[in-house]
Design a protein around this nucleic acid. Structure first.
Length: 815
RNA sequence: GCGGGCGUAGCCGAACUGGUAUAGGCGCCAGACUUAGGAUCUGGUCGGCGCAAGCCGGUGGGGGUUCGAAUCCCUCCGCCCGCACCA
């Protein structure tokens, strides 16, 4: 029989838990290692194989690091606030708290069945008041520093989830809600923002972290830094009135033949002439009514209207018409632009449509003075640019920028695409924003001693989509903490990305009540050494948590700049249909049944074996039998005496030794590099080899024991239960295998004595010969030229060259 | 449109810095042990030609650099991801 996985796994899980071997002591002589993996949302789907794929390799790596001598902190918790809980409340009348906690209970059981070394003593659940109290505390700290502010702004609203969203949570070409896929609409609302833009420049600096290039690129593009000049353009006939434009191309300013204001630009009404008013009003109306989807349809022609007013180019006094057009956005730059059709694709199309002149001011190399067929965007020689003509455009760029500054009409400016983080949510199941609005005192922050502002339990969940807090008199009606007169609480709650922005700190001391975390423990554990999780959080969670850490640094809570030093993005396991697993799609696959049938160790190993961790792909359970057989063979190898036959009598002790050490080297390097699939393949090769050595006199010799012990030790992080059972019950080694040192390899033993030397003639393999590994180049040279098969192909030809690649091959080149 | 990634046996995937393409596994074929085998063990398994030894072709297509290319360069095709009027 194979082995009784059910009994073995339960037995060891209970003992590990009872003895607390997964708990990382805060103060310990070993070097610390904080290994963090993204915590799950406790959804009604519970944990599926996609979760296992994320957590099991992380656990294996954490276990490996512990065997390597580190004191590894490997915590888990639950991202417990969020919309699905509230939707369940509306649809089925279950309170979000109960729904969430029931799901968490279920998931805890699944997490235990996984056999992972979670440090349960540090578990956090973000919907608990003693957690979200600190969200509020941070909010107040930011409010004091001007980093949290309330502003009336056009914001993205999801009509299905009935809440506003941060810019990062609106995705794709159609601008849909990141959570539910519904197209968002614009609303003008007073909302709370966190000033992440204050850190834009610093967030572009990735020099202190080792993160995947991909994430660095995503964040860099998201922040979208552009450097240019903002300058003042006076309006003809309106003394004292001017508007500002932002451009990254001050070198093209002499090519301006029109200006464009965004439809929402505040000067439009004032500047539009009477004869133009009707058209402009109609256009404004159209732009306001049109959804972003329509406005952004890729191939739509840019249109606009002349408003009747003229702008004066501050550099040469030229008068150009002012247009209103929706291709200029109020939310970027100044909401107004200089129209330079010759050197901007959009302006080019606009000028063509309205027959505006397209003068070239940056000549392309070899330009013959003819009109352009399309906008020329590259560098060139400046022409028709007054005193700047003849300069290379990059030089002109700097000169014009300097001159605008010197003449007081402009300034150098950097703009970012990044917006401040909109954190208000018109929902119940989140952290209440600790603010009171008093008719007399205005916006009053809740005093620290009143925290936490607790969610009322008796909220009413209506299908109308309105926030239950808004209609909860007991919550809403308060007395001002300054003047004592009746006032109102803020009823919006915080974006749940707030919770995850600092959860890594709370794990250190989840019950600490003097601050978000115990600074003494912070000095031990921080920052996070290794973080793992999906790449889908690249511009949300991973950007927010970097921002949060920088704020914490400025609050002197931490003394470093980045939350997580290293990051690894695992791939995503899709449903068997190739789509993302989700309950609504009905393609989720649970690990529960497989764990029942095969045991957690088999499921763990299979998930690690199917491919590189960073790739993922559609779920396909075919092949799990391979892992079943591998573990059964391993089991038999350790537990059963040699049977008859099947042994390879030519094997020597040195072969076993080489295989063992070579495998240790391979597995060590693979686990260092998160290459679990090849680590398991190496272990399979070792087992297959040992099986051939088993029914020989080598069985039971010291090299045999070393091989078997090493095998079980290497198996321990991957398949912790089987390894423990073999280690303790069959090898009679001291409990626990998980507290043993990772086997070391001896480089001398890990090197083969014999190598296969490949003999090529003109790059084609003609023979392979076994030679001592220590063969010199000259000897290899000779072996090759003396080889009959090589001779057969060099016969009658002249040897032009012999290339020796030490330890690998010899290539005889003929002429 | 811009940016990034990927493409290797029937399938999942290996291949260090340019040096034996296809390790390991699944599946399939054959054999052994068996009353039996959906267990286990052994062997085989990229294609073409060949009795065989072997030869030739082969890493999405085409071209190039090199003694030698899955790997580097150019180009085309396909798939995936991100951004998308950002001035």
């Amino acid at each position: 029989m194979r082995y009784d996985h059910g009994g073995i796994e339960r037995k060891w899980q209970e003992r590990w838990e009872a003895e607390g071997i997964s708990h990382a002591p805060d103060f310990d002589a070993r070097p610390k290692y904080y290994f963090l993996t993204m915590y799950p949302y406790p959804s009604g789907d519970y944990l599926h194989v996609g979760h296992w794929f994320a957590y099991v390799p992380a656990d294996a790596k954490a276990r490996y690091l512990r065997m390597c001598g580190c004191n590894v902190l490997f915590p888990i918790g639950f991202d417990a606030f969020g919309l699905p809980a509230e939707n369940a409340a509306i649809e089925r009348g279950i309170h979000p708290y109960k729904w969430t906690m029931d799901n968490i209970d279920h998931m805890r059981r699944q997490f235990r069945a996984m056999g992972a070394m979670w440090d349960w003593k540090r578990e956090i659940v973000t919907c608990m008041p003693h957690y979200y109290k600190w969200n509020q505390w941070f909010f107040l700290k930011m409010y004091e520093r001007g980093l949290a502010y309330r502003r009336l702004a056009p914001v993205d609203w999801c009509p299905k989830d009935n809440t506003t969203l941060a810019r990062e949570q609106v995705v794709g070409e159609n601008r849909v809600c990141e959570r539910c896929g519904t197209p968002v609409i614009k609303k003008n609302l007073a909302q709370w923002f966190l000033k992440i833009t204050a850190y834009a420049e610093e967030l572009l600096d990735f020099s202190k972290i080792q993160w995947p290039e991909r994430v660095v690129t995503l964040q860099t593009n998201w922040i979208g830094r552009s450097e240019g000049v903002e300058f003042e353009i006076p309006v003809k006939g309106h003394p004292g009135i001017s508007f500002r434009v932002f451009t990254t191309r001050p070198d093209t300013v002499y090519g301006m033949t029109f200006c464009v204001l965004a439809p929402e630009h505040p000067l439009i009404d004032q500047l539009t002439t009477l004869d133009r008013r009707a058209d402009v009003e109609a256009y404004k109306f159209k732009a306001a009514r049109e959804s972003d989807i329509e406005r952004l349809s890729t191939e739509r022609e840019r249109d606009g209207y002349f408003i009747g007013a003229y702008a004066i180019n501050p550099m040469d006094g030229a008068e150009v018409p002012i247009f209103i057009a929706d291709y200029v956005l109020l939310t970027y730059g100044t909401g107004a632009i200089q129209g330079v059709p010759a050197h901007d694709t959009r302006d080019f199309g606009f000028a063509r449509k309205y027959d505006l002149p397209i003068p070239v001011v940056v000549a392309p190399p070899g330009w013959d003075g003819q009109p352009l067929e399309e906008a020329y965007l590259d560098e060139g020689t400046m022409v028709n640019s007054g005193p700047y003509s003849g300069l290379p455009s990059p030089v002109g760029w700097e000169r014009i920028a300097d001159d605008m500054v010197a003449r007081g009409i402009g300034e150098r400016k950097v703009h970012y695409r990044l917006h401040d983080w909109l954190i208000s949510r018109q929902r119940y199941w989140g952290t209440p924003i600790p603010i009171i609005y008093c008719p007399d005192c205005g916006t009053v922050p809740v005093p620290y001693e009143d925290l936490p502002v607790v969610l009322p339990e008796d909220a009413e969940f209506r299908p109308t989509g309105e926030s239950p807090l808004k209609f909860h008199a007991g919550f809403r009606q308060v007395h001002c903490r300054r003047c004592g007169r009746p006032a109102e609480r803020e009823t919006d709650t915080m974006d749940t990305f707030i919770d995850s922005s600092w959860y890594q700190y709370r794990y250190l001391s989840p019950h600490y009540d003097q601050g978000p975390f115990d600074p003494e423990k912070g000095r031990v554990w921080l920052p996070v050494d290794q973080y793992t999780g999906g790449v889908e959080h690249a511009v949300m969670h991973l950007l927010y948590t970097r921002f949060w850490t920088k704020v914490m640094r400025d609050l002197r809570l931490v003394d470093f700049d980045e939350p997580m030093i290293r990051l690894f993005n695992q791939g995503i396991i899709l449903g068997p249909d190739g789509h993302r697993m989700s309950k609504s799609r009905g393609n989720t696959v649970t690990a529960d049944d497989m764990v029942e049938q095969y045991g957690a160790d088999v499921v763990r190993a299979y998930l690690m074996f199917i491919g590189p961790w960073n790739e993922g792909g559609p779920w396909n359970p075919q092949g799990i039998e391979g892992i079943v057989r591998f573990l059964a063979r391993t089991w038999a190898l350790v537990t059963e005496p040699p049977g008859g036959g099947g042994g390879d009598g030519t094997l020597r002790a040195r072969d076993v030794e080489y295989r063992t050490h070579h495998t240790i080297q391979r597995v060590t390097e693979d686990l260092d590099g998160f290459r679990f699939n090849t680590a398991i393949a190496a272990l399979m090769e070792l087992v297959n080899f040992l099986q051939r050595a088993r029914s020989t006199p080598l069985y039971g010799t010291p090299v045999w024991h070393e091989a078997v012990r090493s095998l079980v030790l290497m198996l321990a992080p991957l398949c912790p239960h089987v390894a423990e059972e073999l280690w303790v019950e069959h090898l009679k080694e001291p409990y626990s295998v998980h507290q043993q040192a990772w086997p070391a390899f001896d480089p001398a033993k890990a090197t083969a004595e014999q190598i296969t030397l490949v003999l090529q003639v003109d790059g084609r393999v003609r023979d392979r010969v076994d030679v001592p590994a220590a063969i010199t180049d000259a000897e290899a040279h000779e072996v090759a030229l003396g080889n009959p098969r090589v001779r057969q192909f060099t016969d009658g030809k002249q040897v032009a060259d012999v290339i020796v690649v030490p330890g690998r091959l010899v290539n005889v080149v003929t002429r």
